[in-house]
Each structure stands twice: as structure tokens, then as C-alpha cells.
Computed example of a mutant assay.
Amino acid sequence: MALALTSAPAVEPVSLAEAKAHLRVDQDAEDDLISALIVSARSWVERQYGLALITQEWSFYLDRVPGAGAVALPLSPLQSVESVTIHSANGGTNELDQDAYAYDALSKPARLIFQGANGGASLRPLNGIEIAYRCGFGDAADDVPGPIRQALLLLIVHWFERREPVPAGGEPPEVPAMVAGLLAPYRQVRL
């Protein structure tokens, strides 16, 4: 299984002005650092919690259709499945009709279920099935739930104030409990 970003978010869930106001920074000397911390905080939250905060598009690749025909999509919230493409062993591609699959955007994680044939048994040996999908809370920063935006601001402050590297052989610093608490409702439970 592989996951590839095909269209990155157009904006960040927290603006530079919001982060600077939260940090109480008035000058522009730290803008590059703060901008990098915004991107890093978003990326960290998305990775740790299986989320896409701002609308983005991904392709999820599978070697074959799972036995039950159901596929859990790795990022949520799911907005739509754009296409399902079968890559054949001979180099050809076949985009499945929308009636060949169904998806459930309400489940966490979201899932896609194949209904019937998978487009042929001669899939290429690796990444033979491509599921292209759009996910995220919305196109604008205000579409991201308030607790997540607040957690991002707190994480940015935490990293801004602690710029030292992790000492050799040392444990990385813990994420503040307040950040973890704000994000707890968005954690996907995996069994």
C-alpha cells in the first residue's frame, strides 16, 4: 500500500498573522520560522491523527482488492472518491465506473467497497489499484474545527519557545498535554 499526495492544501489552517498574534510577535524577523512551524504543526497533526485539515487530494495504491472487498482509506474526513483506476500487468489502465464501487464518508476511517468485478485479474504486481480521493474539512482555514486550530497554535508556541535539538540518546520532548487533549476527539481508534 502506498499513499501519494496529488494536490496539496491551498492554505494553512492557521495564518501567519494568527500565529504571530498568538505568539505576541510584532516584528517580521521571525516570519520564516513561524511559517515553517505552521506547516510543521499541520503536517504533524495530520500524520499523527490520520487527518487532512484543508482540502487536498491523494492517491491510495493497493496491490489487489482485499478479500472482503472493503478498503479503509487512510485519511479523513473524506469528501469524495474521484476515481478508481485499475493498472493492468500489460501497462494499460481502466477507470472503473462509479457503480463498480461505493464509499462511506461517515465511517472513521472512511471506506470504499468494491461491488463486483475489479476490472480484471491481470493487475500489475505492485500498486495495481489506484483510488484517487479528496479529503479535508474544507477549503478555508475556518472550516477546520476550532479545537484543532487551537491545538495547532499551542503546538506552534511550544516549538517556537523550545528550539533546542533533542540531545543524543535523549527522548524527544512530549507534546503538551493540552494539545493532546484538544486533539483527542479526532484520534481514530484502531482495533
Rank of each mutant, 00 (worst) to 15 (best):
G91A: 12
A117L: 12
L155K: 00
T93P: 04
E130G: 06
D143F: 03
P77R: 05
P147F: 04
E171Q: 15
Y103M: 06
D142S: 10
L75K: 03
Q150A: 15
A168Y: 07
R111W: 01
E164L: 08
V144K: 09
P172F: 04
I113M: 11
F114M: 14
G120E: 09
S107D: 08
P173Q: 13
G136A: 09
R163D: 12
P172N: 08
V144S: 02
A102H: 11
G120K: 07
L152Q: 02
S122Q: 10
G119S: 03
P165Y: 06
L152S: 09
N127H: 10
E130N: 06
P77S: 02
E174H: 01
A140F: 07
S80Y: 08
L106Q: 06
E161M: 03
A151Y: 05
G169K: 11
I86K: 15
L155M: 11
A110K: 02
N127P: 00
C135W: 04
P176I: 01
S80A: 15
G146Y: 12
E174G: 06
G146N: 03
A72D: 13
S76F: 04
I156D: 11
F114K: 02
R162D: 11
Q115Y: 10
F160K: 02
N127R: 03
E95S: 07
D99Q: 06
L155G: 02
T85P: 12
P77F: 02
R124C: 07
P74V: 07
E171D: 14
A72C: 10
P74N: 10
D143H: 10
P165S: 14
D139V: 15
S83H: 13
Q98S: 11
P176E: 00
A72R: 10
I129N: 05
L106E: 14
G138V: 10
S76T: 14
V157Y: 05
A117Q: 14
E174T: 09
R111M: 06
L126C: 01
A117E: 13
I129Y: 03
E164P: 02
V81H: 06
G92H: 10
G138T: 07
A151P: 02
I86V: 15
D142L: 11
G92C: 08
I129K: 00
I113L: 09
I129C: 08
A168F: 15
Q150S: 15
E130A: 07
A72M: 12
A168P: 13
R162M: 09
P145G: 14
G146T: 14
P77H: 07
K108I: 10
T93F: 15
L152V: 07
P147R: 00
E171L: 15
C135M: 04
Y101T: 05
G92W: 12
R111C: 00
N94A: 06
K108V: 11
V144R: 02
P109S: 01
D104C: 12
F114Y: 03
Y133A: 13
P173R: 12
P74I: 12
L73Q: 01
V144T: 07
N118S: 13
R124H: 05
R163S: 14
R163M: 12
P147M: 08
N90T: 03
E130L: 01
R149W: 06
L126F: 12
S107L: 13
V144F: 07
T93K: 11
A100M: 01
L75W: 09
